[in-house]
Design a protein around this nucleic acid. Structure first.
Lengths: 338, 338
DNA sequence: TTGTAAGCGTTATCAC
DNA sequence: GTGATAACGCTTACAA
């Protein structure tokens, strides 16, 4: 079956291109009869208006780009799920870009998006970037951006985040209340937005209980399991912490593996709480206490903010200053038990 | 910063549109000097060729559509990760569509893709569809499709699957060797491709060991945890199986929850093995024995097959008959231990 | 109610 | 080496 275009369809029906177009667009007047005739024939010939052409004509793509550090990850895949569902309802399509936490890839993606491929961007930033000129360069009037979870504070755009400081404080406090005194903070990049905020919560909780800060207990990890395992095996053996607050899910997993290996008993010898969107945290051995971000809701809020921008109903400047903060939930489970 | 187009840039530089275009496309002759002048000015004015326009001109979108039943799922998110990475290298973009296992949504997506939005499709089909007219309708010459994991046998297109029959046989055999005699098979849709194949492996393993098939031990589940839990609580209490082979990850989780609730001890009272792409199966309580599909590789093979089709290097008919079968790996862990 | 024609931003073809 | 022009497939004033 060959692809047919509007001109050929028009010829077949002895009508003009404009009439065909009208039949598909709804508005402009057109008699029911011709409309039906056109749609029937289109059905038969398997004609569909070419999106590339109509998008170009209308100067929009009905597409939004979603940029995330990773995708094979509970948190982001849940957020994307929400975004996709909402976009679908609005008749929009979503493009996915994975930066692998690489600022250069992020910059490359961003700067290739200002050319009509997408009408808007939803992104969770990579950790590494220092300069975000490429972000400031893009014209948010034409290509609005919404940040979620991991944001660049210095870029003016709507943001959807969670109460990371508070939940980190509470998570740490929870460990303290369970008797921990040597509490480690595991982080992938402590200079980055979320790594930093979460660390502040951790530090202030220690302060409240007059527990001295100890730099040795702040562990810089990375993104591969193997390396994290090696880092943690050494760290656990040397520093013998009695509590661990992991700022990212994967670090809790690495801790579990290391504890198994070293024969450290959780929660007896070491208590753990971690940021995590794992739905089966309860099934872990032992059940993992978590700070769980509302991943789906974050995605949902982000995408609805983006549509507010796209639909230009509200005051744009006001929207750009918006920072929606959702609450994470703390689940106390076996891993922080006595 | 306003979006600028080729015409304006040409005017600024006192050059023609064609010269500008040449500077960006590499080929056609153009003096190094003018080229540099153009690229510098473009950089300064933040000009980028409009993709919509050039795609339309070239009649391709440099985009591939990925259609999956769900995304917040280890298996699919890993596969998408592979696809995204490969596509990026090739300068392609990926559109994501989630069908939620709904055949109608799938049909809607598919039939809206024949209009230039994507150059190719990679899909894992939804379970429910019976008729796939919409699939046969699309012109694979212009819009090639590659299936992965969940396929429609009656549609002629390249497929990438795993050795589901064998691994199901082996998984069931493993349970039998561990002493199980009342082995349940948990499935979401036993009429669907993978549900069926996996069931055949299960049945043949029983046969080999002269264990009579028992319809009551085939449990039809669904996609929500709550409902599965209810189904399984009743099932476990009534039928008292001593082994469970779950054809899908989420059913193993539901079984764990139910066992916890009923005080059934795994593996003492009940042994479990499940298809699963969970990377932390070892951390479960108890560690879950799994049949693990090479999700990333499946995605990788699928996307490279698609590019073979797009690049039209090989014989198309031959490619369309291709069925790459990758091997899953069986990990025997605590949940099937003595 | 329908047709005509211009134009969306590119790129390929053909001149010069 | 560079410029003019037509074409990609569609939508929308404007004309009839």
């Amino acid at each position: 079956m060959d692809t047919i275009n509007i001109k050929q369809l028009a010829a077949k029906l002895n009508l003009s291109k404009s009439t065909i177009s009208r039949a598909f667009r709804g508005h402009s007047d057109i008699s029911e009869k011709t409309k039906k005739r056109i749609l029937d024939m289109a059905e038969k010939l398997n004609y569909q208006p070419n999106h590339l052409a109509s998008n170009m004509r209308e100067q929009k793509s009905k597409t939004i780009a979603v940029i995330v550090p990773e995708i094979a990850n509970n948190f982001f895949s849940q957020a994307i799920h929400a975004i996709e569902g909402y976009a679908k309802q609005k008749g929009y399509h979503i493009l996915i870009y994975v930066t692998d936490d690489d600022a250069e890839k992020e910059a490359a993606y961003i700067s290739h998006l200002s050319n009509g491929r997408a009408d808007g961007i939803i992104m969770s930033v990579s950790g590494e970037g220092r300069k975000h000129q490429y972000l400031k360069k893009i014209n948010q009037q034409r290509l609005p951006i919404v940040f979620f979870d991991r944001v660049y504070e210095d870029v003016k755009a709507p943001k959807v985040t969670t109460n990371d400081y508070e939940s980190s404080f509470l998570a740490t406090e929870h460990l303290i209340e369970r008797g921990c005194r040597r509490i480690a903070y595991l982080v992938v990049n402590k200079k980055m937005s979320i790594g930093k905020t979460r660390m502040n919560g951790y530090m202030d909780a220690l302060k409240k209980y007059h527990i001295p800060m100890n730099d040795h207990l702040i562990v810089d990890c990375c993104n591969t399991l193997e390396l994290n395992r090696r880092i943690l095996l050494e760290f656990l053996a040397e520093e013998k912490p009695d509590g661990v607050f992991a700022s990212v899910e994967r670090l809790a997993f690495a801790t579990y593996y290391s504890c198994y290996e070293l024969g450290i008993s959780i929660p007896k010898d070491l208590k753990i709480i971690s940021f995590s969107s794992l739905e089966i945290a309860t099934l872990l051995n032992p059940a993992l206490s978590t700070v769980t971000q509302p991943a789906f809701d974050l995605g949902h809020q982000a995408v609805s903010l983006l549509f507010e921008l796209l639909e230009k109903k509200k005051n744009i400047q006001e929207l750009k200053n918006k920072n929606i903060v959702l609450n994470s939930e703390i689940f106390k489970r076996k891993s922080t038990d006595v």
